[in-house]
Simulated assay, not measured.
Amino acid sequence: MIITKAKPIEEILPFLEGKERIFLVGCNVCAAKMKTGGEPEVLALFDYLTGLDYNVIGWAVPTAACSVRSYESLVEKNEKLKEADCVLVMACGSGTSVIASILDLPVTGTNDTLSLGGQIGSSAINHLCSLCGDCNIGDYSGICPNACCPKSQINGPCGGSKNGMCEVSKTSECVWYIIEKRMKTVQTLPILNKIKPPKDHFV
């Protein structure tokens, strides 16, 4: 699941200057779960902008903004999109890019994309994967230090962690403290004796 947070409205309004017909596109997968682009959030933004006298001519919430087949597939149920002169996409950066690639219109996103994460029950979990293309999460019993460590340490904690707490995010546990606890529990700690080479970020 892609973790997003809504941008402040003050960052979005400048994009709308001079635009006469605004169309909103949400996302019924990740953004809906994060409450940053599902139908309730799209309708709330619709009402908010309309209240500011912006002309919002329509909205759509495709199943996944990052997986739209074509311009035609998007407008089949949303004829008003043909009349728009700009589009706000309430999705992640990927969803916004996909929508932009099929429209000859100015497009911008209303969200900041934080990371690839997950969800357990109603709780969203951030920074589970950094999409590095060189995955060795099995070496750490299912926890990715590249994604979870602010310094992307892959061979152990930095010198700044103290009493199990992160030097950078002082209110968070050091991921290496978490990794060690988990690997002790599942009896895989000896794997950490092997030094890992630097990640190849050009894979």
Rank of each mutant, 00 (worst) to 15 (best):
L192C: 03
T171S: 13
G117K: 10
D104Q: 14
G159W: 04
P190Y: 04
H127G: 03
T110N: 06
N163L: 11
G121E: 10
I120V: 12
N155K: 06
I191W: 05
N163M: 08
T113G: 03
S169A: 02
L105T: 10
V186T: 14
V175Y: 05
M183G: 03
C148R: 13
N126Y: 15
D139W: 12
S122L: 11
T108W: 13
C148M: 13
K151V: 01
S169W: 09
C86L: 07
E83N: 11
L192H: 04
L116M: 14
N146H: 13
G160A: 05
V89T: 07
A91V: 07
K170R: 12
G164K: 05
L192I: 01
A124I: 15
G121F: 08
V175M: 04
N155H: 02
T185I: 05
E180S: 07
V89L: 12
S123V: 15
S122F: 12
E83V: 00
H127N: 13
P150F: 02
C129T: 14
P190F: 07
N111T: 13
K151D: 03
G95Q: 04
V186A: 06
L189Q: 05
S161T: 07
A124T: 13
I99Y: 14
E173A: 09
A147D: 01
S172F: 08
T171P: 00
A124V: 15
C92K: 09
S172E: 12
K181T: 09
L116E: 15
G93T: 07
I143Y: 02
A84F: 08
R182A: 02
L103A: 11
E173F: 08
V98N: 06
S141Q: 06
I120C: 04
D112I: 11
W176E: 01
G156D: 08
Q153P: 00
V87T: 08
P190K: 09
P157H: 02
P145Y: 06
N155V: 07
M165L: 07
T185E: 15
V186H: 08
L114P: 14
S161Q: 09
C129G: 10
G159A: 05
P150R: 00
D85Q: 11
S172W: 05
Q119D: 07
I99N: 12
N155M: 04
L131P: 00
L81T: 07
V107A: 14
L131Q: 14
C148Q: 14
I154A: 01
C135N: 07
V98C: 06
S94Y: 14
K194D: 04
S130T: 10
S169N: 13
S123H: 15
N126W: 14
D134H: 12
L116V: 15
S169C: 02
S115N: 11
D104S: 15
E173I: 00
C166I: 06
Q119N: 14
I154T: 01
G121R: 10
L88Y: 06
G138Y: 09
Q119K: 15
N155E: 02
V87L: 11
S161E: 12
N155G: 02
G156W: 10
G93R: 04
I178N: 01
T96K: 14
N111G: 15
P145E: 06
P145W: 02
C158M: 04
G142M: 01
I143A: 02
W176A: 00
C149R: 03
S161H: 01
V98H: 12
K82S: 05
K181F: 04
G164L: 01
M165H: 00
